[in-house]
C-alpha cells in the first residue's frame, strides 16, 4: 500500500503527539517526588483520604474517623449472612493478626474493622458476636445508607442487594481489604483471593514504606 502525502503527514502528527504525551508523562512522573515502590496493594501516590463518618459500633460506642486516627486499620466490608467470602476473609484476618502480633506497628497501633453493609439485619449487638467469633479484638460497625455512603463512596466500595432465590437477599459487595493509615489515608488495597501471608507481607511493607515518608 502506498502512503499518500496526506496520510504520511497525519502519521507524522500522530507520532509527534505521542512523543509529546510520553514526554509529558515522564516529566510529570519525575516531578512527583516520592515514586511508588513496587509493593503489592500499595496505593501511592495520591491515596484517597477518608472523610468524616459516623457509624454505630459493636461495642455500643460510635465508630468514626477518630476510631481510626493514629491507628493502622485493616478494613473489610460485608454482612453476617454472607456465607462464603466474608467468613473466609475474616478467618484470614484472624490468622493475619496472629502473624502480626509481634510486629511493633501492628502491636501498638493495629486494628481490624468489619463494616456491615446490611444494617436492616445486622444490629450492632449481633455484629459484636459475629466478629468476636473470629477474634475478640475485632471491631464491627454499621449505619444507615447515608452513614455507610460516607465511608464507602470515598473508597469506591460497591454494595448491591440481590434476591437469593429463597425469598431472602444477599449483598454483592467490594471484597477487597483496605489498609487505612494513621492519617486516614487509604494506603493499601488487597483483592481476593486473600491469604494471611500476603496480608502480613503487605502490611509490613506498606507500614515500613509509609514510616519513611
Amino acid at each position: 500500500m502506498q502512503a499518500s502525502p496526506k496520510a504520511s503527514s497525519a502519521t507524522a502528527l500522530l507520532v509527534l503527539v505521542g512523543f509529546v504525551a510520553v514526554s509529558a508523562g515522564l516529566i510529570f512522573a519525575a516531578t512527583r517526588g516520592s515514586k511508588a515502590p513496587d509493593i503489592p496493594g500499595l496505593l501511592w501516590p495520591d491515596p484517597p483520604v477518608l472523610a468524616n463518618f459516623s457509624l454505630q459500633g459493636s461495642a455500643g460506642k460510635p465508630i468514626d474517623q477518630h476510631t481510626l486516627e493514629g491507628r493502622w486499620t485493616l478494613l473489610f466490608f460485608g454482612f453476617t449472612n454472607c456465607p462464603d467470602v466474608c467468613p473466609t476473609t475474616l478467618a484470614v484476618l484472624k490468622q493475619t493478626v496472629a502473624r502480626l502480633a509481634d510486629y511493633p506497628p501492628f502491636r501498638a497501633q493495629g486494628q481490624v474493622l468489619f463494616i456491615s453493609l446490611d444494617p436492616a439485619r445486622d444490629t450492632p449487638a449481633q455484629l459484636a458476636q459475629y466478629v468476636q467469633h473470629f477474634d475478640t479484638r475485632f471491631l464491627a460497625a454499621t449505619g444507615d445508607d447515608a452513614a455507610l455512603d460516607a465511608v464507602t463512596v470515598p473508597l469506591g466500595v460497591i454494595r448491591a442487594k440481590v434476591e437469593d432465590g429463597s425469598g431472602g437477599y444477599s449483598i454483592d459487595h467490594t471484597s477487597s481489604i483496605f489498609l487505612i493509615d494513621p492519617k486516614l489515608r487509604v494506603i493499601g488495597k488487597f483483592g481476593l483471593p486473600h491469604s494471611a501471608a500476603m496480608l502480613d507481607e503487605g502490611f509490613r511493607a506498606i507500614t515500613a514504606f509509609r514510616g519513611a515518608q
Binding site: P83, D84, I158, V162, H173, S175, L192
Partner: peptide, 30 residues
C-alpha cells in the same frame, strides 16, 4: 473487586473429570 454469587443449575463431570468447591469459588450455599 466486586464479589457476586451466581446460581449454577448443575455440575457436569465428564468421565475422568474433576471439580473443586472451595472458599471464594464454587460452593454449596446452605
Amino acid at each position: 473487586d466486586r464479589a457476586e454469587m451466581r446460581h449454577r443449575s448443575q455440575l457436569s463431570l465428564p468421565a475422568g473429570g474433576r471439580e473443586a468447591l472451595t472458599p471464594g469459588g464454587l460452593h454449596l450455599m446452605l
